[in-house]
Design a protein around this nucleic acid. Structure first.
Lengths: 198, 198
DNA sequence: GCCTTATATGCAACATATTGCATATGATCC
DNA sequence: GGATCATATGCAATATGTTGCATATAAGGC
């Protein structure tokens, strides 16, 4: 007789399913609504196309973690108004308390930068400029959100505090990208290499 | 008759295929070798299991972008020694010069933190501690690499410079994580919320 | 009038990633 | 003596994500 060591339940990641549960926990809504909401807030950390959202809502429904009410509309398509169920809340809580798997950064842009010495500078520099612009614009948005948080008076709920701390991560993340892009640009155009530790 | 606007070639991302080409461009090797190399350097930005690497090598071979030489070994399994081909280099160059698609951060850990107000603190704090440890250790590694880069004398090649600038990004990225984790811990244990901009 | 955007949901094909399993030998750990 | 690790490659099933397309109405821009 052999004793086999305990093997942690493998369980798939299910991040999108649970990100959806988080959103529905905050406020019920349609798949369409969720797609919108995935552009701000939690969308910093997880995004999804509407196609994927509809699929996952269907799967979540089959598992009884969400339920919907069909709302017929005259001059617009009918809507399915979803809300989280009690088992849904329990499943979400379990997922939130589960162990974190190692994360992968997986950025194609970083691979391209890392190997830029194998490419012509022109197109690479063009992408760098474009991304500098984009990231600067996004940073401004985040900074405005931060300002409006800091301007708020009165007690901050745990939820608000976590949202704010996450926002700070996003702000620093964008700044990190901007710094990288500036350094790569300086390197490609002027051959300048940073000589002091990051 | 209708004229349809030019539609950019959709082309799938193919990041792993091209990350493999980058590695083979640097030095030929077996799938096993590549799996090892994906742990340092470019592995910061793209990782893959050995199963996936073998699959992609097969696909790359069918497209003629890599080729291999079978090396029979007596007391070890036979090896396929891969190298990049001329068409492979051309394809890699094209990919490196192509436009960057918008990137998704997609971090399950960040989703969990964002929604931590719905969970018991215990397990979340345990994961935070574990990750603080892990990230601190990884940061030390990266800092050692940086030190050895800065200690180097003589001219720095473009390639070395890009690797270094990428490393700097990785260092700042880890510091950003450490700061987030510290802030979340302070929030959950002491209710402390940062009161100054990030 | 035509094109685009917003509202609202969804199928199908394909691409990519994860998990479990299979095979085979030699070395090292306990 | 058995377990684990390193070497070396791979199949199969499942999970997740992307891309293209389909449908239907109303509002607004040119």
């Amino acid at each position: 007789m052999q004793y086999v060591a305990y093997k942690a339940a493998p369980e798939p990641a299910m991040s999108l399913k649970n990100a959806i549960l988080v959103l529905l926990e905050g406020k019920p809504g349609t798949g369409y609504d969720l797609a919108q909401r995935f552009r701000g807030g939690i969308g910093q950390f997880w995004t999804a196309s509407h196609q994927q959202i509809y699929q996952e809502l269907k799967a979540l429904g089959q598992d009884g973690l969400v339920e919907f009410e069909l709302q017929e509309q005259a001059s617009r398509p009918d809507r399915k108004h979803y809300r989280i169920t009690a088992p849904g809340r329990a499943a979400l809580k379990d997922w939130l308390e589960a162990g974190w798997k190692p994360e992968r950064l997986n950025s194609a842009a970083l691979v391209r930068i890392y190997a830029a010495y194998l490419a012509d500078q022109g197109p690479v520099l063009a992408e760098i400029e474009r991304n500098l612009e984009e990231n600067r614009a996004k940073l401004d948005e985040y900074l405005a959100q931060e300002a409006s948080h800091l301007a708020r008076t009165g007690r901050t709920s745990r939820r608000q505090a976590l949202v704010y701390v996450s926002l700070r991560f996003g702000i620093r993340h964008l700044r990190n990208w901007l710094e990288l892009l500036a350094e790569v640009r300086a390197l490609l155009t002027e051959g300048r290499v940073p000589d002091r530790p990051a």
